[in-house]
C-alpha cells in the first residue's frame, strides 16, 4: 500500500480515492474510503468544538464547522496527544475572511486555548503562608524576592471585552449587555478542578508577565506601572495569595531549586 497516497486523499477532499482498495461485493470503494476521510475531519472538528465552545456559540455551529474544517485541513495535528491541538487556531480565525466582521473572535479563542493549557498544566504546592510572613520580616530583601507562580497561570490583554464575552456564555451575564469593544484583561488559572477566568487591570497583567519572565518582585512592580495606569501591588498580590497562585518555595535571587 502507498500510505502517502492514502494520507493525501484523507487531507484533500477533492483528491481521488487512493488506489489498491477493494470491496468484497464490488460496491464503490470511494464511498467506503469516505468513512476514513470523514472521520479524520469530523473527529478533529469535534475536538476543536470541545476546546473552543464559546467561539462556537459566538459564530454558530454551522459557521464553526466550516471554519474548523478549513483549519483541520490546513493545520492537521502533528502529535497524537490532542489535548493541545488548535494552538494556532486563534490566528487562523483572525485571518479568516468571513469572520472579519467580528474582530473579537480570535481573542476569545485565545482565552479558551489558554484555559486548556491551565487545565492540564503541572501541579504545584501553594506557597505556605509562613513563607510570606518570613519574607515580610526581612523587608530589606523584598525587592530581590523571587516569587514563583503556579504553572497554570496565564494572562491575556485584549482590546476586546474577552472576559465579559466569555462570562456571558457561562450564563453569568446577558450577551446583549456586553460591550465587546471595551478592552479587558484576563487572569486564567486553575483552582482545584476548574479553570477560573478573572478580569484584572492591565497593570496586573504586566506585573504577572514580569514575574513569569523571572523578574524579582521589585522589578516586576516597577514594570507593572505605566504613565496611564497605576498599579496596586497589594490588590494584585492579595489576589494571587488568596487564590493560592503563588507556588513554593520562594527564595531570594538565584535561590530556586
Amino acid at each position: 500500500m502507498n500510505a502517502g497516497a492514502f494520507a493525501a486523499a484523507l487531507l484533500d477532499r477533492t483528491a481521488p480515492c487512493p488506489p489498491g482498495l477493494r470491496s468484497w461485493n464490488g460496491s464503490a470503494v470511494a464511498q467506503r474510503f469516505a468513512v476514513y476521510r470523514n472521520n479524520f475531519a469530523v473527529s478533529l472538528v469535534e475536538a476543536l468544538a470541545d476546546s473552543f465552545p464559546v467561539l462556537r456559540e459566538l459564530v454558530g455551529a454551522a459557521f464553526f464547522r466550516t471554519l474548523a474544517d478549513a483549519y483541520v485541513r490546513r493545520v492537521p495535528p502533528r502529535s497524537p496527544a490532542l489535548a493541545w491541538y488548535g494552538a494556532d487556531f486563534p490566528d487562523f480565525v483572525a485571518a479568516f475572511p468571513a469572520a472579519s466582521g467580528v474582530p473579537y473572535l480570535a481573542d476569545v479563542a485565545r482565552l479558551e486555548y489558554v484555559r486548556i493549557l491551565a487545565f492540564h498544566a503541572a501541579d504545584a504546592a501553594p506557597l505556605p503562608a509562613a513563607a510570606l510572613a518570613a519574607a515580610l520580616r526581612k523587608p530589606e530583601q523584598l525587592p530581590a524576592l523571587r516569587l514563583q507562580l503556579h504553572p497554570s497561570i496565564a494572562v491575556l490583554a485584549s482590546p476586546f471585552a474577552v472576559v465579559s464575552l466569555w462570562a456571558a456564555h457561562q450564563g453569568l451575564t446577558a450577551i446583549a449587555a456586553v460591550d465587546p469593544f471595551r478592552p479587558e484583561c484576563a487572569l486564567v488559572a486553575r483552582c482545584g478542578d476548574s479553570v477560573e477566568v478573572t478580569a484584572i487591570p492591565s497593570a496586573a497583567v504586566r506585573f504577572i508577565a514580569a514575574l513569569q519572565a523571572g523578574a524579582v518582585l521589585g522589578e516586576a512592580v516597577a514594570q507593572a506601572a505605566s504613565p496611564s495606569a497605576s498599579f496596586d501591588p497589594a490588590a494584585c498580590l492579595g489576589l494571587l495569595i488568596g487564590r493560592q497562585l503563588l507556588a513554593g518555595p520562594a527564595g531570594q535571587q538565584g535561590g530556586s531549586p
Binding site: A3, F6, L10, L11, N39, P77, P80, L82
Partner: peptide, 22 residues
C-alpha cells in the same frame, strides 16, 4: 492500524494491507 504519516496525525485507526511486507 496506522494513524500517522509524514508527521501528520490523522486521529483515526487506518487500515493495513495484510501482506508480507506489512
Amino acid at each position: 492500524a496506522w494513524s500517522s504519516h509524514g508527521g501528520v496525525f490523522f486521529n483515526d485507526l487506518l487500515p493495513l494491507p495484510y501482506d508480507a511486507a506489512t
